[in-house]
């Protein structure tokens, strides 16, 4: 008799996404869907979609969704969770959304120990608007608004959100994984599940940062984009569980 080793998660809709070839948003969606399935929480999950390429995340994830203004997803999630404390609320945010325009909202949601789960897609660029510099863009990287490469003298340095947030007492789980190869995706999957469990255990704020590729705006082939994540991003953004995990690998 055949055994099923892998199947499409129930929470992932059977539709074609609008993401570019080689974009890792699709992998991240799958990880979220798998975690929801595994924990059996589909009926009480409310997702908060942010402004960025993943604005239509609700077209792919089969659960209740609220679409939030740019950067405000943690505040919207706070409102949802305070009214429905037994629900499971997660935000799905890009780096422009979370680490630039929404910095206040994410920091204070973490400081309050808001019992929400945050999936943070760090692709080092503004995808949806066409490749402008993000707060997470690496020094020297060219974008449409840093055409000569990010110059720290003018544009400062990339923000390490996990390191920053893990200093806050309200943050119960803080972890960073990368989506550049299967082994790392598996690790990311564990972190995402852990971030939801943390909410179910009412421990506090939980965030997983996923280092991601944007081949389109990096002007790289999908395979080279994954290589860039592995070689350049991981070097600047150390992986591991910073807080609340089995053991820090940072």
């Amino acid at each position: 008799m055949a055994t099923v080793v892998m199947k499409r998660p129930e929470t992932l809709k059977r539709v074609i996404t609008h993401y570019c070839p080689g974009c890792t948003h699709g992998i991240a969606h799958r990880l979220v869907a798998e975690a929801i399935d595994k924990l059996g929480i589909k009926q009480k999950v409310i997702g908060v979609a942010s402004v960025g390429c993943s604005v239509f995340a609700y077209n792919y994830l089969d659960c209740d969704f609220v679409q939030a203004a740019h950067g405000r997803a943690p505040a919207v999630a706070t409102g949802l969770k305070r009214v429905l404390p037994d629900s499971v609320v997660f935000t799905y945010q890009g780096d422009g959304d979370l680490a630039s325009i929404g910095t206040a909202e994410i920091v204070h949601a973490a400081a309050r120990g808001e019992k929400i789960t945050v999936i943070f897609i760090n692709n080092g660029i503004y995808g949806m608007t066409g490749g402008q510099m993000a707060p997470t863009t690496l020094v020297g990287d060219r974008t449409t608004t840093s055409p000569e490469g990010r110059d720290p003298a003018k544009a400062g340095y990339p923000i390490k959100m996990c390191e920053l947030l893990s200093t806050l007492e309200g943050a119960a789980y803080v972890a960073r994984a990368s989506l550049h190869d299967p082994a790392n995706v598996l690790k990311a999957s564990r972190f995402v599940t852990r971030a939801f469990e943390c909410q179910l255990e009412r421990k506090g704020f939980a965030i997983v940062e996923l280092l991601s590729a944007c081949p389109t705006n990096w002007s790289l082939k999908p395979i080279d984009a994954l290589k860039a994540v592995k070689e350049k991003m991981v070097a600047h953004y150390p992986l591991g569980e910073f807080k609340g995990g089995a053991g820090s690998e940072a």
């Binding site: 409310i46 908060v48 609220v66 939030a68 203004a69 405000r72 505040a75 919207v76 999630a77 706070t78 409102g79 949802l80 969770k81 305070r82 009214v83 429905l84 629900s87 206040a104 909202e105 920091v107 204070h108």
Partner: peptide, 17 residues
């Protein structure tokens, strides 16, 4: 809230709930 921006977005979430 940490600001009025956050406050109204919390209101948005609470109303959605």
């Amino acid at each position: 809230a940490e600001s009025e921006v956050a406050a109204i977005n919390m209101v948005y979430g609470a109303a959605a709930a």
